[in-house]
Design a protein around this nucleic acid. Structure first.
Length: 141
DNA sequence: GCCAACGTTGGC
DNA sequence: GCCAACGTTGGC
């Protein structure tokens, strides 16, 4: 039996790497993570897992869905330390982006780490939370 | 642009 | 091992 898919949320400033850049490239090496908690989350990802793509700072909204295509491997951009990255490819954009304000207003998302721990850049999301955000975004996988 | 929250660093 | 200082992130 295959294990149930895990769900994640990955954050990026669109001025650095936006959803549009991601779609244009067709894939992304998610490198440069320098936070242990975020790194450990990257390492827990399996190919096929789905991740919400969130624009921080400017935008502040979930804009799309990405799929893990390669599990964690050593981050080639790390000059020192023990860091990892994974590869994603875009699945689809949300029909309607889900802004942070809407997430905060939704009771079912009160425990979302994005709200409770706003500085974490890679975080797990429960299947229910994932489904709720897709519902708010008017989108099905 | 400011500030709060958090992680990391370094002195003791 | 504690804690103050500092840097970074991200919401407002």
């Amino acid at each position: 039996m295959p294990k149930a898919k895990q769900h994640w949320l990955i954050k990026q400033e669109p001025s650095t790497f936006s959803w549009d850049d991601f779609v244009a490239d067709g894939k992304a090496q998610w490198d440069g993570v320098r936070n242990y908690q975020a790194r450990n989350n990257l390492r827990a990802m399996k190919p096929g897992d789905l991740a919400l793509f969130y624009h921080s700072v400017t935008g502040k909204e979930v804009v799309g869905i990405a799929r893990v295509v390669k599990e964690a491997y050593p981050d080639p951009t790390a000059v020192e330390g023990d860091w990892s990255c994974v590869d994603f490819q875009p699945v689809k954009a949300l029909k309607t982006p889900v802004p942070l304000a809407a997430i905060k207003a939704e009771k079912r998302l009160a425990n979302l780490l994005l709200v409770r721990h706003s500085r974490l850049s890679v975080m797990p999301v429960s299947a229910a939370e994932f489904a709720t955000i897709l519902e708010l975004g008017g989108t099905k996988v």
